[in-house]
Design a protein around this nucleic acid. Structure first.
Lengths: 260, 260
DNA sequence: CGTGCCAGGTGCCTT
DNA sequence: AAGGCACTTGGCACG
């Protein structure tokens, strides 16, 4: 018994041949890659018109769609996952309509000339791990609170207030309550305002002095100004440092916790 | 004289053949599309590890690079334009390093099995126009102020304050000053806070009563609550409506302005 | 569902 | 370069 073809690649197919391959690929939940000359009309939350030109078009099995020009990181047009594809040949050439019921959005691609159609069977179960995130900064402070300042003792993480979420609340070496806001990139005025919002809530509940600490790898001048004005503090800390600390943690064998 | 090949497409090439095509494609500023099994290591502002799996890889002539899994709108790894590519065969297979001097970021793709390499010559000079943006909402109100409310007269657009930018300032039918903040999506509490920030600045400069008007297609309950609390107003207006109004404007012949 | 917020956000524009 | 902000932001987590 022959195994089904893992890929179909057509070079400069006619529209009918392209249509067949694309429909087959979508039906079989393959990744479909098309290179060709097209126009794109989008209509939904906004709307857009893209005039004729050669682009790379990608349809994924999860119903996401991308139209990429030969430049830039971001697609010129797209639909997020969950879209429905409809392919037909009309007077404008090979027309593919990508529709998303949620948001009532549609993207219509009209292909006039096709350089390539590739129907690919991509199997991808590899784990993806991102390091040096804000989450890791939080974990690092909880794991080794001294990196914030000696004697700091975290009490809560991700406390819901107001609404909103305070990253960390804890007590310092002098038993003063501290509200900690973490940013993985340079903190600006907006970050300080966010900290203030949480401080205002805590101040209502607590008549004792409360420290506000902004943790970030850097801070803008405007941010620093507002911070000083409000009497809060800035603690420089990079996501990379925090990631390194967690690497030590993960490297520590479990038995280490049971040793003196 | 033969014209140079517009595309090279290799099916299941060996690593050496793939390497040659990829290097050629990058050197000639073509769009290179690779389907194959790979790992990706990224290191820069953050860092990440992507375990073995089959993905679609795109290198563009402007030095941008994308690694797409067979799902999701966004690439799992990438480099923005201006990156430098380096391709070699090592013990991990075909290794492509994408380096960005600014930001000191690197992405290393190690390909072990290759399903396809396509070197494409995409020529794309088509215009792209996006409609129903916040900018268009602003223009529509300036063009036909009555859509905000009858008798409204805009005075400034994009006025810099504090710092920050007030979308529109104008006078209503009763000559009361009004600060207008525009949102193209449902306005939330943050949008109201933004309006408040501008109102606070204007209130300092102006002892007369000032109206705060939030223009948006919708508003969240929390946003509405704060709005009422602060005594501001909400004017429902969709970006699509505004776009339609501007379409009329563009449709209006210039001569119309000279007629009674 | 809405509400809030992070993201390797990206991109645009202005000082 | 720094700062402010929109984006068809997308995506997740939580009530």
């Amino acid at each position: 018994m022959e195994s089904p073809k893992r890929q179909i690649i057509l070079q400069t197919p006619n529209l009918e041949g392209a249509k067949k391959a694309i429909k087959t690929g979508i039906a079989r939940h393959r990744t479909v890659v098309i290179a060709g000359s097209c126009t794109v009309d989008y209509d939904g939350r906004a709307s857009s018109k893209l005039e004729e030109g050669e682009r790379l078009i990608i349809f994924k099995p999860d119903g996401s769609a991308l139209v990429h020009r030969p430049k830039d990181y971001s697609p010129v047009n797209w639909q997020p996952s969950g879209s429905i594809f409809h392919t037909r040949i009309g007077k404008d050439g090979l027309v593919i309509r990508v529709f998303r019921r949620k948001e009532r959005e549609s993207m219509v691609i009209s292909l006039t000339m096709i350089q390539m159609v590739a129907v690919l069977d991509l199997v991808d179960n590899g784990d993806f791990t991102l390091y040096a995130t804000e989450k890791e900064m939080q974990e690092a402070i909880l794991f080794k609170p001294d990196i914030l300042e000696p004697g700091f003792r975290p009490m809560t993480k991700e406390m819901a207030v107001d609404p909103g979420f305070i990253d960390i609340i804890g007590y310092d070496a002098d038993d003063i309550l501290a509200v900690v806001e973490i940013k993985r990139v340079k903190a600006n005025k907006k970050a300080v305002e966010q900290l203030k919002k949480y401080m205002d809530v805590i101040d209502l509940d607590d008549s004792r002095r409360v420290r506000g600490i902004l943790v970030a790898p850097d801070i803008t001048d405007n941010g620093s100004e507002l911070l000083n004005q409000l009497g809060y503090e800035y603690k420089p800390l990079t996501p990379q440092e925090c990631s390194e600390i967690l690497k030590q943690k993960r490297g520590t064998p479990l038995t280490a916790f049971f040793e003196p």
